[in-house]
């Protein structure tokens, strides 16, 4: 009772990275609260799955293994979670802010009439005093996220309802093994006790999932372009530089929206979070939503025609100039000076 729960997503037969990241966060929240960390895994052919999860410091793993639970469908997964949460009464439940998590968590939140905060960038435990009712709340989950187009940072709480529900995007939290030999308890759920025929009203007819071909999350050097790059053609320059120095290419939301670069490369609060050793921001103004996805980069170079662009304030180097002039020179001088 009153533990921290993480819903674990299955991706290509393994626990998704975002879920492992949440387990790491969940472990630290559970340590602060002095409670247990529990994981929920719903899918098919899950034998041995606990070995993947336990090292993250998971005390209890709830597993429902049934061929109808994979691929993911909204209704069966939400029916199991809602009933399980009613039985186990978690104080906190975390979901990845993925297509699955963003489909599932609101449904669960509505059924349990408890609040949900989407796309949190930070989760911490804190107290709250409500003046109106003169009530002191201890150990609430502060759900912190940028809001209003990233122009404000909001701290959201859920004082009177449980579980406190939050989603977090992949890459926002760090995944870290807690103890390779951590002792866990596996609890097998019998799907029959949780599901009815009406949960299978929606059926999957076809599914095409591509392998991850773009993997910028773990890139050591990232060159990212914004709206200021100006065109899809100019974006080619970023790829040229990337090839020469061995980097990945990303884009801001504005660049993705403008069609300069694929959605899979979007960096920021509603995209991927990266922590490279070098981040080269090309024509990116640097709204907080973008910075939320890259401000932990070890070094930042900003190339921008506007010396007052907000991104320059977190940059180690600011090159005042046009991307189309600067990048070819970077390529040239890298080639001349390397080796």
């Amino acid at each position: 009772m009153n533990n921290v729960f993480v819903y674990c997503e299955i991706d290509e037969g393994q626990i998704a990275d975002v879920s492992l990241e949440l387990l790491t966060k969940g472990r630290s929240l559970a340590n602060t609260l002095g409670c247990k960390l529990e994981a929920v895994v719903l899918g098919h052919a899950l034998k041995g799955i606990e070995k993947e999860i336990a090292p993250y410091g998971v005390d209890v793993i709830h597993v429902a293994d049934d061929q109808r639970l994979f691929p993911y469908l909204t209704l069966p997964h939400s029916s199991i979670l809602v009933q399980l949460f009613q039985e186990e009464k978690p104080q906190i439940a975390l979901f990845g802010a993925s297509v699955i998590g963003r489909d599932l968590a609101p449904r669960v939140s509505s059924a349990l009439k408890s609040g949900l905060t989407a796309d949190c960038t930070s989760l911490i435990i804190g107290d709250h005093y409500d003046k109106k009712t003169d009530t002191n709340y201890e150990n609430l989950l502060y759900q912190i996220r940028p809001a209003f187009g990233g122009n404000i940072i909001a701290t959201i709480i859920n004082p009177d309802h449980r579980p406190q529900l939050a989603t977090v995007r992949e890459g926002v939290m760090k995944k870290e093994i807690y103890d390779p030999a951590y002792k866990t308890k596996v609890r097998t759920l019998d799907p029959k006790n949780y599901l009815s025929e009406t949960d299978f009203a929606v059926s999957i007819i076809e599914r095409h999932i591509e392998d991850r071909k773009i993997n910028i999350k773990n890139g050591q050097i990232i060159i990212a372009g914004g709206y200021g790059v100006g065109s899809k053609e100019n974006f080619r320059l970023l790829f040229d530089l990337a090839e020469v120095i061995g980097a990945e290419v990303g884009g801001s939301r504005a660049a993705v929206d403008a069609g300069f670069v694929e959605h899979e490369r979007q960096i920021g609060q509603t995209g991927i979070t990266v922590r490279p050793k070098l981040y080269i921001a090309c024509g990116i103004s640097g709204q907080i939503q973008h910075r939320a996805g890259m401000d932990q980069s070890a070094q930042i170079i900003s190339i921008n025609t506007d010396i007052n662009a907000p991104i320059n304030r977190i940059a180690d180097y600011t090159i005042v100039g046009d991307v189309a002039d600067v990048i070819p020179k970077m390529i040239q001088y890298y080639k001349e000076n390397s080796k």
């Binding site: 809001a147 404000i152 701290t155 959201i156 304030r313 600011t318 002039d325």
Partner: peptide, 22 residues
């Protein structure tokens, strides 16, 4: 159920940036 505990306007904390030209 959700309450906004705090709203902070985003303020940039500048770090020392080397300014270069092209």
């Amino acid at each position: 159920p959700t309450k906004v505990k705090k709203i902070e306007n985003v303020v940039f904390t500048a770090k020392e940036s080397k300014i270069l030209n092209d």
